[in-house]
């Protein structure tokens, strides 16, 4: 437990140093949020409050920006985060069926993490790999031209 608290303190320290290193915080909220999400993996209320205080803006404003952009998330990603392309090219080549299978196999929903923290699914607009449609990625690994039947075996490797 002590180790976790210490780890968390270090993360806040890293974020604080980053904000302090900026010559001017005017207009830099999105940059800071990118950094914070890089450090913490997500942007919980605590982190948003911290940023608001450091940058001397209201927490409501920080929340307003966080909730506006799809890249920012207030929920931690799963240990295995599956990013599925939901762009049009993938849609017409059957991405919805792949998504249904992914949900079934992992128990996660788009934008949600399973209660045990194992799987999460992130919906992407287009990853620009339309030649591989339908496509999803897990970490660095790209699964292209996937068929619904293959999903079960792919996910089994991560269970």
């Amino acid at each position: 437990m002590a180790a976790i608290i210490q780890q968390k303190e270090e993360k806040f320290k890293e974020l604080e140093q980053y904000i302090d290193s900026l010559p001017d915080t005017k207009g830099e909220l999105i940059r800071v949020l990118h950094k914070a999400q890089g450090i913490f993996g997500f942007l919980p209320e605590e982190v948003q409050r911290f940023i608001a205080k450091k940058m001397k803006v209201s927490t409501a404003k920080v929340f307003g920006v966080v909730s506006f952009y799809s890249f920012f998330t207030m929920e931690p990603k799963g240990e295995v985060d599956i990013s599925i392309c939901l762009g049009t090219a993938c849609y017409v080549r059957g991405a919805e069926k792949i998504l249904t299978e992914l949900k079934k196999e992992t128990g996660a929903e788009v934008g949600k993490t399973t209660p045990n923290g194992k799987f999460s699914i992130t919906g992407l607009r287009c990853i620009g790999a339309c030649g591989l449609a339908p496509v999803f990625t897990i970490g660095e690994k790209v699964y292209g031209r996937v068929t619904p039947e293959q999903v079960k075996d792919i996910i089994a490797q991560y269970k």
């Binding site: 949020l33 890249f71 607009r125």
Partner: peptide, 8 residues
Amino acid sequence: LSFGAGAF
């Protein structure tokens, strides 16, 4: 560079 955060 400035980075977008996903908003059409």
